[in-house]
Amino acid sequence: MSFPESLQNTFLPQEIQFIVENEPIKILPRITTRQRKQYRQGSNYDPDSKNSHPIKPWRLITTNDYNVNNMIAMKSTELPLWMAVLLKEQKKCNIIAPNWITVSNLDKYIDFELKNPMKFSSLPWNWLVIACILFTKAPDDLTDPIHLLKSRCQDLREIRLAKVQNGLAILNESHLQLDNLSLMEINEIRPYATKISDMFKNLHKNTAAGLGEDYDMHMDTSEPGASFNMTQNP
């Protein structure tokens, strides 16, 4: 690919948002898309013949049409987030915010983060994106005042960011554990972590520990007589 290196190795935040927008979310539609029974079953409707039925039933075009074409006003259903946001912008539904976006629940997460300096709280893998989308697109659907939620999320992000920064100081050549870190947060540090781990790996592979099992094989090749000694004076 002729993509620049920065786009090959990692996602843009916008791409992460795109991925997350495909996740289902609960909504409360204000419109009904379910057709009357005879249309939906299509018993006396044949699209190929022109005069079988005078009225063609309208349908929304989707690949998985069950939820989209079966919305009943004020009856909760699940839709992909991007669809929900689209309907929300047209005032055709209310988004039911996930139950972790409340002041009391976010406070619990913040508490956990503060009490466990070596762990991340178990927020959903897409919390940052969901929170950002809901704050901008559906602020009136959230149960608590938005400025309180926003400040909680900002706190969470900063606490976790500080932990990530601390974690970078103990990065090594073999592994990196990132439990409960969300996709967006991992994506942010990915270029740094992969690049520096690669260098660690390259440097480490020539040490005795790095050579490991094939140590003997490498030692068989003719070695120059001099061995390098750090205290040696030239």
Binding site: I196, L203, M230
Partner: peptide
């Protein structure tokens, strides 16, 4: 260093540099 250490296996030197990179990386 990477090339040098393929000729002269020097764990001490590599460890020192990995620690250096870790600190500078932060």
């Amino acid at each position: 260093l990477e090339k040098w250490s393929t000729i002269y296996n020097s764990d001490e030197l590599v460890d020192l540099f990995m620690e250096l990179l870790r600190k500078r990386g932060v």
